[in-house]
Design a protein around this nucleic acid. Structure first.
Lengths: 125, 125
DNA sequence: GTAAGCGCTTACCTTTGGGTAAGTAGTAAC
DNA sequence: GTTACTACTTACCCAAAGGTAAGCGCTTAC
């Protein structure tokens, strides 16, 4: 029943291993805000309200959740400075920067994909 | 108030453009099953029930939805052959193969991330 | 002492994604 | 004519993600 075969492809075990890796990666990057927050902090360290102002549209509830999440995953650090009142400054770790290639490829592909979608919408109308 | 600055980074417009691209890309790859279905069809063209058998755990409802979605986005083609009864064969397009680099980077990073998570869990216990 | 800023938390609601189970139109085999 | 297969669709349910709005403990400014 399998009519077309592409023998140059990896075998099924390599495929499912790779799929697991990809799904793990997507799990971390997923959600409406995670990458925006990471990028915002990679650009410069910031305080809670500064982040909320720069990442337009995010609510404090969601931002607090994302920051906890990102800290747990090692993408950012929460620094508490003993000023009065304490200043809390969020900082991207070097680990955030390991996402560079992933984000690069996603950005290239995403741009190209949007072009393609635009063109096919023009054709249909 | 911005205490640490990294001047080698792109400016904010480039950043938000790139972010939009990345989010568009993630939107397409997102969900529990999309990539599994794409990879399954890239390996060889198949019929509905064959896909459902290979992608273990997917329900017919979700598979039907994903196939429609993937067809709309140009990743797969739905070929109807006028046998009696008609055979419907799903086939990955060349466009699915443009995901190669993206999936490659995601897989590399995802694997490395899982290693990291494992190690930090060992440390904590 | 009242208002305003900081860094959140809480309660409540809606939307979305996905799971289960059953059904359906068409065909073919027995 | 009953059963089974194919390619789905439909109805119903649940959990997670995210939005809205309000509040809270603390501090400083007026």
């Amino acid at each position: 029943m399998k009519m077309i075969r592409n023998e140059s492809l990896p075998n099924i075990e390599e495929c499912t291993d790779s799929l697991r890796n990809v799904i793990d990666a997507l799990y971390v990057l997923n959600g409406k805000w995670k990458l925006a927050v990471i990028l915002c902090l990679v650009r410069s360290s910031k305080r809670f309200n500064e982040i909320q102002h720069e990442v337009t549209g995010i609510s404090s509830k969601v931002l607090a959740k994302e920051l906890k999440d990102l800290e747990l995953n090692g993408f950012i650090r929460r620094n508490v400075y003993p000023t009065t009142p304490v200043s809390i400054i969020y900082e991207a770790t070097d680990y955030s920067r390991t996402l560079k290639n992933v984000i690069g490829e996603l950005s290239i592909w995403g741009q190209q994909h949007r072009e393609k979608v635009k063109q096919s919408m023009r054709k249909q109308s």
